Simulated scan of single mutants.
Amino acid sequence: MSSHFQKYTDSTLSSHDQVARALGTDIIAGIYPPGSKIPAEAEILERFGISRTVLREVLKTLTAKGLIVSKTRVGTKVLDQSNWNMFDSDVLSWKVAHGFDAEFRRELAEIRLAIEPEAAALCADRATPEQIAALRESIEEMGESSLSRIAFAEADLRFHQRIGDASGNMMMRAISAIIETALVASFTMSSPVDEKAEHKKSVRLHRAIVDAIEAGDAAAAREAMRKTIGHGKQRISRAEKRKET
Rank of each mutant, 00 (worst) to 15 (best):
I111K: 09
S191D: 14
F159V: 03
A64T: 03
I175A: 05
A114S: 11
A151R: 08
R173Q: 06
R106C: 00
K243W: 06
I28W: 05
D10A: 04
A124F: 11
A64E: 03
T63K: 05
S191H: 09
D80E: 10
D80Q: 11
W94E: 04
A124N: 11
F5C: 08
A102K: 11
L183P: 00
S82V: 12
D194F: 10
A119S: 15
S15T: 00
F159S: 02
S190R: 15
M86S: 00
G24S: 08
V193C: 06
E180H: 12
M171V: 09
A218W: 09
K37I: 00
L59R: 10
I68E: 01
I229D: 07
F104I: 00
I28R: 05
S2W: 03
G143L: 04
S146P: 02
F159E: 04
A29V: 01
A221M: 11
R56Q: 09
V74Q: 13
L108S: 09
R47A: 15
D17M: 04
R226N: 13
I68Q: 01
F104Y: 13
A120G: 03
I236S: 04
K37V: 00
A127E: 05
E118G: 13
T76C: 07
R73G: 02
N169P: 04
A212H: 05
Q234L: 11
H160S: 08
M170F: 04
S202R: 12
V74R: 14
I111W: 05
S15P: 04
E180V: 04
A29S: 11
A151Y: 03
T72C: 01
R238F: 08
H206F: 06
S138W: 03
A97Y: 08
I163A: 03
S3R: 12
M189G: 05
T53M: 03
S176D: 12
I27V: 15
G230Q: 11
A120Q: 05
S167G: 12
R52T: 05
L205Q: 15
R126Y: 12
D26S: 14
E141G: 01
G30H: 13
